[in-house]
Simulated scan of single mutants.
Amino acid sequence: MPADGSHPTASTAQEPVGELVQRATQQLSQLVRDEMRLAQAEMSEKGKRFGKGGGLFGGAGLMGVLTLQALAATAIAALSLVLDVWAAALIVTGVLACVTAVMAALGKQQIDRASPPKPERTVRSVKADVAEIKEKAQR
């Protein structure tokens, strides 16, 4: 009850609440917009970092290939001290071919395990759920 002893009317009691609700709605809208801008800026920064990281990984992969080529040349040079150069190169090439074949077989095995590219267990589970729901709906 106000200090002057009068009773507040419904309109005066509702006005401040309405203003508070309106202000809260505006502040919430502004907060959501600010958070969206912050998220956008953060994702943009992360995207740039992912791009740089991907480029650096690509460069590292290229350097790795060059390193392996240098290692192969070193192995050929070392073997050529006791064998003819052609024999040393043939031995190193044979070893690299064997490593390649093993890696290809292991990679194919992993891909075969992943095929077909659909969540088979989940599909079976969903089908079972649907069947159970249909069964219960028919009762």
Rank of each mutant, 00 (worst) to 15 (best):
V92P: 01
E120F: 06
L83P: 03
L106D: 05
V130S: 08
L68F: 03
G94E: 02
Q40V: 06
A137Y: 06
V102D: 03
D112F: 12
S115K: 13
C98R: 06
V17H: 12
L68H: 03
R113L: 11
R121D: 15
T100C: 09
A89G: 14
K136E: 15
M63W: 06
A101C: 13
R33H: 11
S29I: 07
G55L: 04
L38F: 07
G64S: 09
L38T: 14
L83I: 02
Q138Y: 05
M43T: 07
G61N: 12
A73L: 06
A114V: 05
S125K: 03
A77C: 01
A88H: 06
A137F: 04
K46C: 04
L71D: 00
G61A: 15
L83S: 12
S29F: 07
E135W: 05
L71W: 00
S44Y: 00
P119H: 08
K136Q: 15
V102H: 05
T100Q: 09
R124V: 10
G58Q: 10
Q138C: 07
A70F: 05
D129N: 08
A87R: 05
G107F: 13
L79P: 02
C98P: 00
G107Y: 08
R49D: 03
E19A: 13
A70V: 07
V130A: 14
V99Y: 12
Q30C: 06
A78F: 06
I133R: 15
D112R: 14
R121S: 14
R33N: 07
A78R: 08
V99I: 08
A24T: 12
R121P: 01
R23E: 09
V92R: 03
K134M: 09
Q26Y: 02
V99M: 07
G61C: 09
F50A: 06
K127R: 15
S115R: 08
K134T: 08
V130G: 11
V95H: 01
V99P: 00
W86L: 07
E35T: 11
R37H: 10
A88Q: 05
T25I: 03
G53V: 01
G59D: 10
